[in-house]
Amino acid sequence: MTTINAPTAIQPKKKKLSPRKRAQRIRIVQYAVLGLLVLVAVLFADGQQIVNVFFRPDLIAKALGPGLGMALLNTVLYSIGAFIFGLVLGTVLALMKLSQIGPYRWLATGYIEFFRGVPAIIVLLAFGLLGIAFPGLKFPLAPFGTVWTALGMVSAAYMAETIRAGIQAVPKGQVEAARSLGMPAGLATRYIVMPQAFRIVTPPLTNELILLVKDSSLVYVLGLTTGAFELTKYGREMSSTYGNLTPLIVAGFCYLLITLPLTLLVRRMEARQRKAR
C-alpha cells in the first residue's frame, strides 16, 4: 500500500486535499457545468423562435379543439381495453407456464417468447390486414375490438411473466398451510395464492398499463376514421398540416395527463408494500 502513495512523495509541494474539501470542489465543478449549459442554452436559443415552433398560442388554441377530447378518450379506451384483455390472457398464460402438463408449458413459453420479441407495430399491421387471410373477418366494435385484441395479445406476453413471478413469490408455506387445513389445490390457488400474487404484481402491472397507453399511439396503422383518432395521430396530423410542432407538444402533454397520475399511484403502492414488509 505504501508504494501506491508514492506520488505524494514525488510532488511534496502539492497539498493533499482533505476528503471534505475534495467533495466540495467536485460539487463546485458540477454546478459550474450546469451553469454553463444554462448559459449556452440562453445565449444560443432564440426564445421567440422556440415559442413559435413549440408553443404557438394560436395553434395551442386550435389543438384544444373538439378533436382533442375525443382523441384523449380514445387513447384511454384503447389502453384500458387492451389492458383488460392482456390481464385475462396473461393470467391464463402464467398459470399455463406453471402447469404440470408439458404441452401447456410449451405453448405458453412459445407464445410469450414470440409476442415479447415482436414489435407491437408488426402485430397491429398484421391485424389490420387479417381480413386478407380470413375474408369477411370483422372484429366487433371495430376499430376498438381489433386494437384491444392486438395490443392485448402483446401485453399479455409481458404480463404473463410478471404474474408468473408474482405467483412464485408467494411463500410456499401459504399453500402448505391451506392444504393442511384440507383445502383442495385449486381452491388454495384461487383464494390463497392468486390474491397475494396480484397484490405483489400490482405495481409492475400498472407500469404495463403506462406502456400500453404509449403503445396505443401505434393504432394509426390500422386505418382510422377521424372519430377513432388517438392522441398521437391527432397531433401528428395537425402538426404536418401547419408545419409546426405545437400540436404534437399538446398531444404529448395529454399523455402526461394519463401517465403521471399512474406513475404516482405506482410509487405510492410500492411505498406501501415496502412498509408492509
Binding site: F85, V88, Q100, F134, G186
Partner: peptide
C-alpha cells in the same frame, strides 16, 4: 384443480378471441 382452472380460463379466452365474427 389448478389445471382445471387454467383450462377453463383458457377456454374462456379462446371464446373471447373467437368473438371476432366471421
Amino acid at each position: 384443480r389448478l389445471i382445471g382452472f387454467a383450462a377453463g380460463a383458457a377456454a374462456l379466452t379462446l371464446a373471447l378471441t373467437g368473438c371476432a365474427n366471421y
